[in-house]
Design a protein around this nucleic acid. Structure first.
Length: 269
DNA sequence: ATAAATGTTAAGAA
DNA sequence: CTTCTTAACATTTA
C-alpha cells in the first residue's frame, strides 16, 4: 500500500476519533489487551505508515507492506485479522500488516517535511536533501522513504514516465535548476493517486505500470528489474531513452481526474 | 500452477 | 565499519 492509500485510511478512521476501544481481537503478538478501554485520540500518517494514538500514552504503528489490507464493519471471510478494534460505533480490521504498539519514539523521529502527502511537505527541504545523496539512479531515488515518504513502485514508475526519464538516469544528470521539478513530480503524482483512488479509478490512469504498450509512441514497454533495489521498472525505451538524461526536465501533464465513468473494483493498494 | 508483486527489516556474509 | 544477500512475513493476481 502506497502513501496516498494510507491517507485515505486515515480519513476513513475519523469516525473513531475520541471513541473508546471496547475490546480488541487478532493474532498480533503485541500486548493488545492494553488497548481495551483506551480512547483513540489522534491519527498521524507518515509515508506508508499509520499511527493510531490512544489515551494512556499508547502509540501504535501499522504498515501494510505488500499484502496488507483493512476493512471497516465488513470482515473478510475465513481470515483472522492481525488486529481488530471494536469501537462502539464500528469495527476496524487490519489484516496481514506489521502492527507495533511501542511506536512513540518511531513517531517522534519522523520528519513530516519529506512526507509526500503532508501539509508540512517542503519542496525546498527535499531538494536540499538531494545534495546529500551519493548518486543514485532515479528508480532507486524515488523509492527512498527518507526523501519521498509514501512513494512506492507505482509512483516511481509513473513519475519516471511523466518526466520522460529512463529508470537508470543518475541523479547527477539532473541539474540543480531542474531538481525542484523532480521533487514536485512525485508530490503531484501522489496527489493524483489520492484523488483517483478515492474515485476507484486509479488503475485506469496507469500509463506504464503493468502496461504493455506506450500510450505516446505505441512501442512495447520494457519491464525489467533495475537499480540497486532491483524492483520492477516499466518504461518506454524510446520516450524514456537514456539519451534524454541531461535534457531540460519537463513534467508532462498527467491525465485529469474523470468526473464520470465506470467504477473499478476497490483494491488495496 | 507457478511466479510475481502496491514493502521492509533483520541477520549474517563479504 | 559498510555493503550485500537472504530470509521472513503473507495474499492476490496473472
Amino acid at each position: 500500500m502506497e502513501g496516498p492509500s494510507i491517507v485515505i485510511l486515515k480519513e476513513e478512521l475519523k469516525p473513531f476519533l475520541n471513541k473508546k476501544v471496547q475490546s480488541v481481537e487478532g493474532n498480533t503478538k503485541q500486548p493488545k489487551e492494553n488497548l481495551e478501554g483506551k480512547t483513540l485520540k489522534k491519527i498521524v500518517t507518515w509515508g506508508k505508515m499509520i499511527f493510531l494514538i490512544f489515551s494512556g500514552n499508547i502509540v501504535t504503528r501499522t504498515h501494510f507492506m505488500l499484502f496488507g489490507s483493512y476493512r471497516i464493519d465488513d470482515p473478510r471471510e475465513n481470515r483472522i485479522p492481525r488486529i481488530q478494534f471494536n469501537f462502539p460505533n464500528g469495527i476496524v480490521y487490519f489484516y496481514a500488516c506489521a502492527f507495533n504498539m511501542d511506536a512513540k519514539e518511531s513517531l517522534e523521529s519522523l520528519d513530516q517535511q519529506v512526507n509526500v502527502l503532508s501539509e508540512d511537505w517542503d519542496e525546498k527541504y527535499v531538494v536540499k536533501l538531494l545534495n546529500d545523496q551519493k548518486d543514485p539512479y532515479l528508480c532507486d531515488l524515488f523509492l527512498k522513504q527518507e526523501l519521498f515518504a509514501g512513494s512506492g513502485n507505482i509512483v516511481k514508475n509513473e513519475v519516471l514516465f511523466n518526466l520522460r526519464r529512463h529508470p537508470l538516469t543518475k541523479l547527477s544528470d539532473i541539474n540543480s535548476r531542474d531538481r525542484k521539478l523532480l521533487v514536485r513530480a512525485v508530490r503531484d503524482y501522489c496527489e493524483n493517486f489520492y484523488e483517483w483512488k478515492k474515485k476507484y479509478e486509479l488503475r485506469k490512469h496507469w500509463q506504464v505500470y503493468k502496461k504493455i504498450k506506450c500510450k505516446v509512441c505505441e512501442r512495447k514497454l520494457k519491464r525489467e528489474k533495475l537499480g540497486k533495489g532491483q524492483r520492477s521498472c516499466f518504461y518506454c525505451s524510446y520516450c524514456q531513452r537514456k539519451a534524454l538524461a541531461k535534457e531540460k526536465l519537463v513534467l508532462h501533464e498527467v491525465l485529469p481526474v474523470t468526473t464520470k465513468g465506470p467504477k473499478e473494483k476497490r483494491l488495496d493498494h
